[in-house]
Design a protein around this nucleic acid. Sequence first.
DNA 1: CGGTATCTTGATTGGTATCAACTTAAGTGG
DNA 2: CCACTTAAGTTGATACCAATCAAGATACCG
Lengths: 228, 228
Amino acid sequence: MSKCEQCIVRQFNSLKHLSKDELVRMSACKTSKIIKKGEPLFVEGEHINGVFCIKDGICKVSKMSENGKNQIVNLVHRGDLIGERSLISDEVSNLNAVALNDLEICFIPKTEIIKDLEKNPNFTMDVLKTMANSLKNADNLIVDMAQKTVKQRLAEALLNLEEKFGTTNEGALDIQLSREDIANIIGTATESAIRLLSNLKKKEIIVFKGKDIKIINHNELEKISHGF
Amino acid sequence: MSKCEQCIVRQFNSLKHLSKDELVRMSACKTSKIIKKGEPLFVEGEHINGVFCIKDGICKVSKMSENGKNQIVNLVHRGDLIGERSLISDEVSNLNAVALNDLEICFIPKTEIIKDLEKNPNFTMDVLKTMANSLKNADNLIVDMAQKTVKQRLAEALLNLEEKFGTTNEGALDIQLSREDIANIIGTATESAIRLLSNLKKKEIIVFKGKDIKIINHNELEKISHGF
DNA sequence: CGGTATCTTGATTGGTATCAACTTAAGTGG
DNA sequence: CCACTTAAGTTGATACCAATCAAGATACCG
Protein backbone atom coordinates (compact mmCIF):
# COMPACT_ATOMS: atom_id res chain seq x y z
CA MET A 1 0.00 0.00 0.00
CA SER A 2 1.28 3.46 -0.90
CA LYS A 3 2.33 5.82 1.83
CA CYS A 4 0.70 9.12 2.68
CA GLU A 5 4.01 10.87 3.12
CA GLN A 6 4.82 10.11 -0.52
CA CYS A 7 1.39 10.85 -1.89
CA ILE A 8 1.27 13.78 -4.30
CA VAL A 9 -2.44 14.32 -3.93
CA ARG A 10 -1.95 15.45 -0.35
CA GLN A 11 -0.39 18.68 -1.61
CA PHE A 12 -3.77 19.84 -2.86
CA ASN A 13 -5.62 19.84 0.45
CA SER A 14 -5.35 20.55 4.15
CA LEU A 15 -3.28 17.42 4.75
CA LYS A 16 -0.27 19.24 3.36
CA HIS A 17 0.11 20.90 6.74
CA LEU A 18 0.69 17.64 8.58
CA SER A 19 4.21 16.85 9.75
CA LYS A 20 6.20 13.83 8.63
CA ASP A 21 5.40 12.06 11.90
CA GLU A 22 1.72 12.76 11.63
CA LEU A 23 1.68 11.47 8.07
CA VAL A 24 3.42 8.25 8.99
CA ARG A 25 0.91 7.64 11.75
CA MET A 26 -1.93 8.44 9.39
CA SER A 27 -0.53 6.18 6.72
CA ALA A 28 -0.59 3.29 9.15
CA CYS A 29 -4.31 3.47 9.77
CA LYS A 30 -5.70 4.67 6.47
CA THR A 31 -7.47 2.35 4.07
CA SER A 32 -7.56 2.63 0.29
CA LYS A 33 -10.58 1.77 -1.78
CA ILE A 34 -11.80 1.73 -5.35
CA ILE A 35 -15.38 2.83 -5.86
CA LYS A 36 -16.86 1.85 -9.22
CA LYS A 37 -18.73 4.31 -11.38
CA GLY A 38 -22.23 4.82 -10.03
CA GLU A 39 -21.48 3.26 -6.64
CA PRO A 40 -21.94 5.34 -3.49
CA LEU A 41 -19.03 6.44 -1.34
CA PHE A 42 -21.48 7.19 1.45
CA VAL A 43 -25.17 7.98 1.72
CA GLU A 44 -27.48 10.28 3.65
CA GLY A 45 -27.96 9.14 7.22
CA GLU A 46 -24.71 7.24 7.39
CA HIS A 47 -22.09 7.78 10.06
CA ILE A 48 -18.92 8.61 8.18
CA ASN A 49 -16.44 8.90 11.04
CA GLY A 50 -13.49 10.02 8.99
CA VAL A 51 -12.41 11.87 5.90
CA PHE A 52 -11.97 10.65 2.36
CA CYS A 53 -9.07 11.85 0.28
CA ILE A 54 -9.69 11.52 -3.42
CA LYS A 55 -6.69 10.16 -5.30
CA ASP A 56 -8.39 9.92 -8.64
CA GLY A 57 -11.81 10.29 -10.19
CA ILE A 58 -14.80 12.57 -9.71
CA CYS A 59 -17.51 12.25 -7.11
CA LYS A 60 -20.91 13.95 -7.09
CA VAL A 61 -22.18 15.17 -3.75
CA SER A 62 -25.94 15.39 -3.65
CA LYS A 63 -28.97 15.58 -1.44
CA MET A 64 -32.46 14.24 -1.87
CA SER A 65 -35.31 16.71 -1.64
CA GLU A 66 -38.64 15.74 -0.16
CA ASN A 67 -40.25 15.37 -3.54
CA GLY A 68 -37.71 12.71 -4.44
CA LYS A 69 -35.46 14.78 -6.64
CA ASN A 70 -31.73 14.68 -6.37
CA GLN A 71 -29.87 17.96 -6.10
CA ILE A 72 -26.15 17.95 -6.74
CA VAL A 73 -24.55 20.48 -4.40
CA ASN A 74 -20.93 19.84 -5.27
CA LEU A 75 -18.53 17.95 -7.50
CA VAL A 76 -15.22 16.92 -5.95
CA HIS A 77 -12.18 15.48 -7.63
CA ARG A 78 -8.52 14.54 -7.36
CA GLY A 79 -6.94 16.19 -4.37
CA ASP A 80 -10.14 17.13 -2.59
CA LEU A 81 -11.05 16.03 0.90
CA ILE A 82 -14.62 15.06 1.64
CA GLY A 83 -16.32 14.38 4.93
CA GLU A 84 -14.47 16.99 6.97
CA ARG A 85 -17.67 17.80 8.80
CA SER A 86 -17.73 14.34 10.34
CA LEU A 87 -14.60 15.29 12.28
CA ILE A 88 -16.39 18.13 13.97
CA SER A 89 -19.89 16.91 14.62
CA ASP A 90 -21.16 13.47 15.52
CA GLU A 91 -24.21 13.84 13.35
CA VAL A 92 -24.85 11.53 10.44
CA SER A 93 -24.16 12.76 6.93
CA ASN A 94 -26.81 14.90 5.32
CA LEU A 95 -25.38 14.27 1.89
CA ASN A 96 -24.85 11.47 -0.60
CA ALA A 97 -21.57 10.96 -2.42
CA VAL A 98 -21.62 8.88 -5.60
CA ALA A 99 -18.77 8.06 -7.96
CA LEU A 100 -19.17 9.73 -11.33
CA ASN A 101 -16.39 7.57 -12.75
CA ASP A 102 -14.13 4.98 -11.17
CA LEU A 103 -12.92 6.49 -7.95
CA GLU A 104 -9.71 5.89 -6.09
CA ILE A 105 -9.87 7.11 -2.50
CA CYS A 106 -8.21 6.82 0.88
CA PHE A 107 -10.18 6.78 4.08
CA ILE A 108 -8.65 8.24 7.22
CA PRO A 109 -10.55 7.35 10.39
CA LYS A 110 -11.75 10.16 12.61
CA THR A 111 -10.09 8.70 15.69
CA GLU A 112 -6.68 9.25 14.15
CA ILE A 113 -7.02 12.58 12.47
CA ILE A 114 -8.92 14.24 15.28
CA LYS A 115 -5.68 14.44 17.25
CA ASP A 116 -4.07 16.46 14.50
CA LEU A 117 -7.05 18.76 14.41
CA GLU A 118 -6.54 19.46 18.09
CA LYS A 119 -2.78 19.78 18.07
CA ASN A 120 -1.72 21.10 14.70
CA PRO A 121 -3.00 24.68 14.32
CA ASN A 122 -1.82 24.96 10.74
CA PHE A 123 -3.90 21.99 9.80
CA THR A 124 -6.91 23.27 11.70
CA MET A 125 -6.65 26.70 10.15
CA ASP A 126 -6.51 25.20 6.70
CA VAL A 127 -9.62 23.13 7.36
CA LEU A 128 -11.25 26.31 8.58
CA LYS A 129 -10.21 28.13 5.43
CA THR A 130 -11.55 25.38 3.22
CA MET A 131 -14.83 25.43 5.04
CA ALA A 132 -15.09 29.21 4.89
CA ASN A 133 -14.59 28.99 1.18
CA SER A 134 -17.23 26.30 0.81
CA LEU A 135 -19.59 28.52 2.74
CA LYS A 136 -18.99 31.41 0.40
CA ASN A 137 -19.63 29.19 -2.59
CA ALA A 138 -22.78 27.89 -0.97
CA ASP A 139 -24.08 31.41 -0.42
CA ASN A 140 -23.47 32.24 -4.04
CA LEU A 141 -25.26 29.10 -5.11
CA ILE A 142 -28.25 29.95 -2.94
CA VAL A 143 -28.57 33.32 -4.64
CA ASP A 144 -28.21 31.79 -8.08
CA MET A 145 -30.81 29.13 -7.39
CA ALA A 146 -33.24 31.64 -5.98
CA GLN A 147 -32.85 34.41 -8.51
CA LYS A 148 -31.61 33.07 -11.81
CA THR A 149 -33.59 31.35 -14.50
CA VAL A 150 -32.81 27.79 -15.48
CA LYS A 151 -31.24 29.02 -18.70
CA GLN A 152 -28.89 31.29 -16.81
CA ARG A 153 -27.98 28.55 -14.36
CA LEU A 154 -27.16 26.14 -17.16
CA ALA A 155 -24.89 28.65 -18.86
CA GLU A 156 -23.14 29.38 -15.60
CA ALA A 157 -22.82 25.70 -14.74
CA LEU A 158 -21.16 24.91 -18.06
CA LEU A 159 -18.63 27.69 -17.56
CA ASN A 160 -17.96 26.58 -14.00
CA LEU A 161 -17.44 22.99 -15.10
CA GLU A 162 -14.91 24.07 -17.65
CA GLU A 163 -13.07 26.18 -15.11
CA LYS A 164 -13.01 23.43 -12.51
CA PHE A 165 -12.35 20.36 -14.61
CA GLY A 166 -10.64 21.84 -17.62
CA THR A 167 -10.81 20.58 -21.17
CA THR A 168 -9.60 17.57 -23.08
CA ASN A 169 -7.25 17.73 -26.07
CA GLU A 170 -10.24 18.31 -28.29
CA GLY A 171 -11.49 21.17 -26.15
CA ALA A 172 -14.41 19.32 -24.59
CA LEU A 173 -15.27 19.53 -20.90
CA ASP A 174 -13.09 17.02 -19.08
CA ILE A 175 -16.02 15.54 -17.17
CA GLN A 176 -18.70 13.17 -18.34
CA LEU A 177 -22.16 13.97 -17.09
CA SER A 178 -25.47 12.50 -18.10
CA ARG A 179 -28.30 14.89 -18.97
CA GLU A 180 -29.87 13.91 -15.71
CA ASP A 181 -26.73 14.89 -13.80
CA ILE A 182 -26.70 18.26 -15.51
CA ALA A 183 -30.35 18.74 -14.66
CA ASN A 184 -29.57 17.84 -11.04
CA ILE A 185 -26.78 20.37 -10.92
CA ILE A 186 -28.87 23.26 -12.12
CA GLY A 187 -31.98 22.07 -10.30
CA THR A 188 -34.47 21.41 -13.05
CA ALA A 189 -36.27 18.61 -14.82
CA THR A 190 -34.15 16.47 -17.12
CA GLU A 191 -36.23 17.37 -20.17
CA SER A 192 -35.79 21.07 -19.49
CA ALA A 193 -32.03 20.70 -19.30
CA ILE A 194 -32.02 18.70 -22.52
CA ARG A 195 -34.14 21.30 -24.27
CA LEU A 196 -31.87 24.15 -23.21
CA LEU A 197 -28.71 22.26 -24.17
CA SER A 198 -30.23 21.57 -27.53
CA ASN A 199 -30.97 25.29 -27.96
CA LEU A 200 -27.40 26.21 -27.12
CA LYS A 201 -26.27 23.74 -29.76
CA LYS A 202 -28.59 25.22 -32.39
CA LYS A 203 -27.17 28.65 -31.69
CA GLU A 204 -23.68 27.17 -32.09
CA ILE A 205 -22.64 28.15 -28.58
CA ILE A 206 -21.82 24.57 -27.71
CA VAL A 207 -21.34 21.35 -29.67
CA PHE A 208 -21.60 17.72 -28.69
CA LYS A 209 -18.65 15.47 -29.44
CA GLY A 210 -19.90 12.00 -28.83
CA LYS A 211 -20.71 12.08 -25.12
CA ASP A 212 -18.68 15.18 -24.54
CA ILE A 213 -19.71 18.78 -24.51
CA LYS A 214 -17.53 21.47 -26.00
CA ILE A 215 -18.03 25.16 -25.48
CA ILE A 216 -17.38 27.18 -28.63
CA ASN A 217 -18.72 30.61 -27.82
CA HIS A 218 -17.68 31.41 -24.26
CA ASN A 219 -18.60 35.02 -24.68
CA GLU A 220 -22.20 34.32 -25.53
CA LEU A 221 -22.50 31.78 -22.72
CA GLU A 222 -21.19 34.38 -20.30
CA LYS A 223 -23.81 36.81 -21.52
CA ILE A 224 -26.59 34.29 -21.09
CA SER A 225 -25.47 33.49 -17.56
CA HIS A 226 -25.70 37.19 -16.76
CA GLY A 227 -29.22 37.39 -18.10
CA PHE A 228 -29.03 38.61 -21.67
CA MET B 1 -18.34 50.71 28.49
CA SER B 2 -19.43 47.25 29.56
CA LYS B 3 -16.89 44.48 29.84
CA CYS B 4 -16.75 41.35 27.72
CA GLU B 5 -16.01 39.13 30.71
CA GLN B 6 -19.34 40.18 32.23
CA CYS B 7 -21.35 40.03 29.04
CA ILE B 8 -24.10 37.43 29.03
CA VAL B 9 -24.43 37.35 25.29
CA ARG B 10 -21.01 35.79 25.00
CA GLN B 11 -22.37 32.54 26.42
CA PHE B 12 -24.30 31.97 23.20
CA ASN B 13 -21.37 31.84 20.81
CA SER B 14 -17.81 30.69 20.32
CA LEU B 15 -16.47 33.45 22.59
CA LYS B 16 -17.57 31.41 25.60
CA HIS B 17 -14.42 29.35 25.15
CA LEU B 18 -12.09 32.28 25.75
CA SER B 19 -10.27 32.50 29.06
CA LYS B 20 -10.63 35.34 31.55
CA ASP B 21 -7.37 36.82 30.36
CA GLU B 22 -8.31 36.64 26.75
CA LEU B 23 -11.62 38.32 27.45
CA VAL B 24 -10.02 41.17 29.34
CA ARG B 25 -7.68 41.78 26.47
CA MET B 26 -10.54 41.61 24.04
CA SER B 27 -12.63 43.98 26.11
CA ALA B 28 -9.90 46.57 25.93
CA CYS B 29 -9.94 46.78 22.17
CA LYS B 30 -13.55 46.16 21.27
CA THR B 31 -15.88 48.93 20.20
CA SER B 32 -19.63 49.09 20.77
CA LYS B 33 -22.05 50.53 18.28
CA ILE B 34 -25.73 51.11 17.72
CA ILE B 35 -26.96 50.54 14.20
CA LYS B 36 -30.35 52.04 13.47
CA LYS B 37 -33.08 50.09 11.76
CA GLY B 38 -32.42 49.90 8.04
CA GLU B 39 -28.79 50.96 8.33
CA PRO B 40 -26.04 48.65 7.10
CA LEU B 41 -23.59 46.96 9.45
CA PHE B 42 -21.37 46.22 6.48
CA VAL B 43 -21.81 45.88 2.75
CA GLU B 44 -20.61 43.73 -0.11
CA GLY B 45 -17.04 44.53 -1.12
CA GLU B 46 -16.11 45.97 2.26
CA HIS B 47 -13.13 44.80 4.28
CA ILE B 48 -14.56 43.77 7.61
CA ASN B 49 -11.38 42.87 9.50
CA GLY B 50 -13.05 41.61 12.62
CA VAL B 51 -16.12 39.97 14.04
CA PHE B 52 -19.36 41.50 15.23
CA CYS B 53 -21.08 40.16 18.31
CA ILE B 54 -24.78 40.97 18.39
CA LYS B 55 -25.94 42.11 21.83
CA ASP B 56 -29.46 42.93 20.76
CA GLY B 57 -31.59 43.18 17.66
CA ILE B 58 -31.89 41.27 14.41
CA CYS B 59 -29.75 41.64 11.32
CA LYS B 60 -30.50 40.42 7.83
CA VAL B 61 -27.61 39.01 5.84
CA SER B 62 -28.15 39.26 2.14
CA LYS B 63 -26.52 39.21 -1.25
CA MET B 64 -27.34 41.06 -4.43
CA SER B 65 -27.88 38.97 -7.53
CA GLU B 66 -26.85 40.20 -10.94
CA ASN B 67 -30.39 41.13 -11.88
CA GLY B 68 -30.52 43.54 -8.96
CA LYS B 69 -32.57 41.42 -6.60
CA ASN B 70 -31.67 41.01 -2.99
CA GLN B 71 -31.52 37.51 -1.57
CA ILE B 72 -31.54 37.10 2.20
CA VAL B 73 -29.31 34.16 3.07
CA ASN B 74 -29.49 34.41 6.85
CA LEU B 75 -31.04 36.21 9.79
CA VAL B 76 -28.84 36.63 12.86
CA HIS B 77 -29.81 37.84 16.29
CA ARG B 78 -28.81 38.27 19.94
CA GLY B 79 -25.83 36.13 20.77
CA ASP B 80 -24.74 35.42 17.21
CA LEU B 81 -21.35 36.22 15.82
CA ILE B 82 -21.07 37.56 12.32
CA GLY B 83 -18.05 38.11 10.12
CA GLU B 84 -16.08 35.07 11.28
CA ARG B 85 -14.93 34.49 7.74
CA SER B 86 -12.98 37.74 7.78
CA LEU B 87 -10.68 36.17 10.38
CA ILE B 88 -9.71 33.43 8.03
CA SER B 89 -9.49 35.01 4.63
CA ASP B 90 -8.38 38.46 3.60
CA GLU B 91 -11.05 38.74 0.98
CA VAL B 92 -13.68 41.43 1.09
CA SER B 93 -17.16 40.49 2.27
CA ASN B 94 -19.44 38.90 -0.28
CA LEU B 95 -22.50 39.71 1.80
CA ASN B 96 -24.48 42.66 3.08
CA ALA B 97 -25.66 42.93 6.68
CA VAL B 98 -28.50 45.35 7.41
CA ALA B 99 -30.25 46.05 10.72
CA LEU B 100 -33.83 44.81 10.75
CA ASN B 101 -34.49 46.73 13.94
CA ASP B 102 -32.22 48.83 16.13
CA LEU B 103 -29.08 46.83 16.58
CA GLU B 104 -26.63 46.80 19.46
CA ILE B 105 -23.31 45.26 18.51
CA CYS B 106 -19.70 44.96 19.58
CA PHE B 107 -16.89 44.92 17.09
CA ILE B 108 -13.76 42.93 17.86
CA PRO B 109 -10.85 43.70 15.54
CA LYS B 110 -9.25 40.85 13.68
CA THR B 111 -5.77 41.76 14.90
CA GLU B 112 -6.79 40.93 18.46
CA ILE B 113 -8.92 37.86 18.07
CA ILE B 114 -6.70 36.17 15.52
CA LYS B 115 -4.25 35.34 18.31
CA ASP B 116 -6.94 33.44 20.17
CA LEU B 117 -7.81 31.59 17.02
CA GLU B 118 -4.22 30.43 16.78
CA LYS B 119 -3.66 29.62 20.42
CA ASN B 120 -6.96 28.53 21.93
CA PRO B 121 -7.99 25.22 20.35
CA ASN B 122 -11.35 25.17 22.12
CA PHE B 123 -12.24 28.48 20.58
CA THR B 124 -11.03 27.41 17.15
CA MET B 125 -12.94 24.16 17.33
CA ASP B 126 -16.12 25.99 18.21
CA VAL B 127 -15.71 28.36 15.29
CA LEU B 128 -15.17 25.31 13.14
CA LYS B 129 -18.32 23.71 14.52
CA THR B 130 -20.37 26.82 13.91
CA MET B 131 -19.12 27.01 10.38
CA ALA B 132 -19.80 23.34 9.74
CA ASN B 133 -23.32 23.87 10.90
CA SER B 134 -23.79 26.91 8.69
CA LEU B 135 -22.55 24.84 5.80
CA LYS B 136 -25.11 22.15 6.49
CA ASN B 137 -27.87 24.73 6.63
CA ALA B 138 -26.64 26.27 3.41
CA ASP B 139 -26.75 22.90 1.65
CA ASN B 140 -30.30 22.40 2.80
CA LEU B 141 -31.25 25.83 1.58
CA ILE B 142 -29.72 25.15 -1.82
CA VAL B 143 -31.86 22.05 -2.20
CA ASP B 144 -34.98 23.88 -1.07
CA MET B 145 -34.38 26.77 -3.43
CA ALA B 146 -33.70 24.46 -6.33
CA GLN B 147 -36.48 21.96 -5.80
CA LYS B 148 -39.35 23.48 -3.86
CA THR B 149 -42.09 25.74 -5.17
CA VAL B 150 -42.43 29.26 -3.84
CA LYS B 151 -45.49 28.18 -1.88
CA GLN B 152 -43.54 25.43 -0.14
CA ARG B 153 -40.66 27.75 0.61
CA LEU B 154 -42.95 30.32 2.16
CA ALA B 155 -44.58 27.74 4.42
CA GLU B 156 -41.20 26.44 5.47
CA ALA B 157 -39.82 29.93 6.03
CA LEU B 158 -42.70 30.85 8.33
CA LEU B 159 -42.16 27.73 10.42
CA ASN B 160 -38.42 28.34 10.56
CA LEU B 161 -38.95 31.93 11.65
CA GLU B 162 -41.18 30.81 14.47
CA GLU B 163 -38.67 28.22 15.58
CA LYS B 164 -35.75 30.63 15.48
CA PHE B 165 -37.29 33.81 16.84
CA GLY B 166 -40.16 32.45 18.91
CA THR B 167 -43.50 34.11 19.47
CA THR B 168 -44.78 37.17 21.33
CA ASN B 169 -47.34 37.02 24.14
CA GLU B 170 -50.07 37.07 21.55
CA GLY B 171 -48.53 34.18 19.65
CA ALA B 172 -47.27 36.20 16.70
CA LEU B 173 -43.82 35.69 15.19
CA ASP B 174 -41.35 37.69 17.26
CA ILE B 175 -39.78 39.30 14.22
CA GLN B 176 -41.05 42.11 12.07
CA LEU B 177 -40.50 41.62 8.37
CA SER B 178 -41.82 43.63 5.47
CA ARG B 179 -43.46 41.77 2.61
CA GLU B 180 -40.40 42.57 0.59
CA ASP B 181 -38.15 40.97 3.21
CA ILE B 182 -40.26 37.84 3.17
CA ALA B 183 -40.07 37.76 -0.61
CA ASN B 184 -36.29 38.14 -0.39
CA ILE B 185 -36.04 35.26 2.05
CA ILE B 186 -37.95 32.83 -0.12
CA GLY B 187 -36.51 34.23 -3.33
CA THR B 188 -39.52 35.47 -5.23
CA ALA B 189 -41.18 38.68 -6.38
CA THR B 190 -42.78 40.76 -3.63
CA GLU B 191 -46.23 40.49 -5.21
CA SER B 192 -45.97 36.72 -5.32
CA ALA B 193 -45.14 36.57 -1.63
CA ILE B 194 -48.04 38.89 -0.83
CA ARG B 195 -50.42 36.76 -2.86
CA LEU B 196 -49.39 33.57 -1.15
CA LEU B 197 -49.57 35.12 2.31
CA SER B 198 -53.02 36.36 1.48
CA ASN B 199 -54.02 32.86 0.43
CA LEU B 200 -52.75 31.38 3.68
CA LYS B 201 -54.82 33.97 5.51
CA LYS B 202 -57.94 33.10 3.55
CA LYS B 203 -57.49 29.46 4.46
CA GLU B 204 -57.12 30.52 8.09
CA ILE B 205 -53.64 29.03 8.38
CA ILE B 206 -52.18 32.36 9.43
CA VAL B 207 -53.62 35.70 10.61
CA PHE B 208 -52.22 39.21 10.56
CA LYS B 209 -52.18 41.15 13.81
CA GLY B 210 -51.31 44.66 12.82
CA LYS B 211 -47.83 44.23 11.36
CA ASP B 212 -47.37 40.85 12.97
CA ILE B 213 -47.96 37.42 11.55
CA LYS B 214 -49.44 34.67 13.65
CA ILE B 215 -49.48 31.04 12.66
CA ILE B 216 -52.71 29.29 13.66
CA ASN B 217 -52.59 26.01 11.81
CA HIS B 218 -49.05 24.70 12.14
CA ASN B 219 -50.08 21.30 10.93
CA GLU B 220 -51.39 22.55 7.62
CA LEU B 221 -48.36 24.78 7.11
CA GLU B 222 -46.13 21.79 7.68
CA LYS B 223 -48.06 19.85 5.06
CA ILE B 224 -47.77 22.66 2.53
CA SER B 225 -44.03 22.91 3.11
CA HIS B 226 -43.75 19.20 2.35
CA GLY B 227 -45.65 19.62 -0.88
CA PHE B 228 -49.28 18.77 -0.20
C1' DC C 1 -30.29 -9.13 -31.98
C1' DG C 2 -33.72 -7.97 -28.68
C1' DG C 3 -34.07 -5.17 -24.60
C1' DT C 4 -33.13 -1.42 -21.74
C1' DA C 5 -31.47 3.06 -20.56
C1' DT C 6 -30.65 7.44 -22.32
C1' DC C 7 -31.76 11.03 -25.18
C1' DT C 8 -34.88 14.00 -27.88
C1' DT C 9 -39.00 16.55 -29.38
C1' DG C 10 -43.97 18.09 -29.11
C1' DA C 11 -48.15 19.42 -26.62
C1' DT C 12 -50.26 20.74 -22.54
C1' DT C 13 -50.69 22.56 -17.97
C1' DG C 14 -49.65 25.22 -14.08
C1' DG C 15 -46.77 28.28 -11.53
C1' DT C 16 -44.49 32.65 -11.27
C1' DA C 17 -42.99 37.24 -12.92
C1' DT C 18 -44.32 41.39 -14.50
C1' DC C 19 -47.06 45.44 -15.27
C1' DA C 20 -50.59 48.49 -13.82
C1' DA C 21 -54.06 50.36 -10.91
C1' DC C 22 -55.62 51.02 -6.55
C1' DT C 23 -55.98 50.98 -1.30
C1' DT C 24 -54.21 51.52 3.05
C1' DA C 25 -50.90 53.01 6.34
C1' DA C 26 -47.23 56.02 7.92
C1' DG C 27 -44.90 60.03 8.24
C1' DT C 28 -44.38 65.38 7.69
C1' DG C 29 -45.16 70.16 7.89
C1' DG C 30 -48.36 73.84 8.21
C1' DC D 1 -55.58 68.39 13.66
C1' DC D 2 -55.77 68.23 8.88
C1' DA D 3 -53.87 68.17 4.23
C1' DC D 4 -50.22 66.43 1.81
C1' DT D 5 -46.67 63.26 0.50
C1' DT D 6 -44.62 59.01 0.30
C1' DA D 7 -44.06 54.24 1.29
C1' DA D 8 -46.09 49.83 1.78
C1' DG D 9 -49.45 46.67 0.85
C1' DT D 10 -53.06 44.54 -2.23
C1' DT D 11 -55.43 42.76 -6.28
C1' DG D 12 -56.27 41.72 -11.26
C1' DA D 13 -54.75 40.77 -16.01
C1' DT D 14 -51.35 39.07 -18.94
C1' DA D 15 -47.33 36.72 -20.65
C1' DC D 16 -43.57 33.77 -20.03
C1' DC D 17 -41.10 30.05 -18.21
C1' DA D 18 -40.61 25.49 -16.72
C1' DA D 19 -42.78 20.88 -15.21
C1' DT D 20 -45.09 17.21 -16.73
C1' DC D 21 -46.94 13.78 -19.78
C1' DA D 22 -46.47 11.24 -23.89
C1' DA D 23 -44.26 9.37 -27.83
C1' DG D 24 -40.52 8.35 -30.57
C1' DA D 25 -35.35 8.07 -31.65
C1' DT D 26 -30.81 6.74 -30.57
C1' DA D 27 -27.25 4.54 -28.20
C1' DC D 28 -25.71 0.78 -25.19
C1' DC D 29 -25.25 -4.00 -23.42
C1' DG D 30 -25.74 -8.73 -22.57
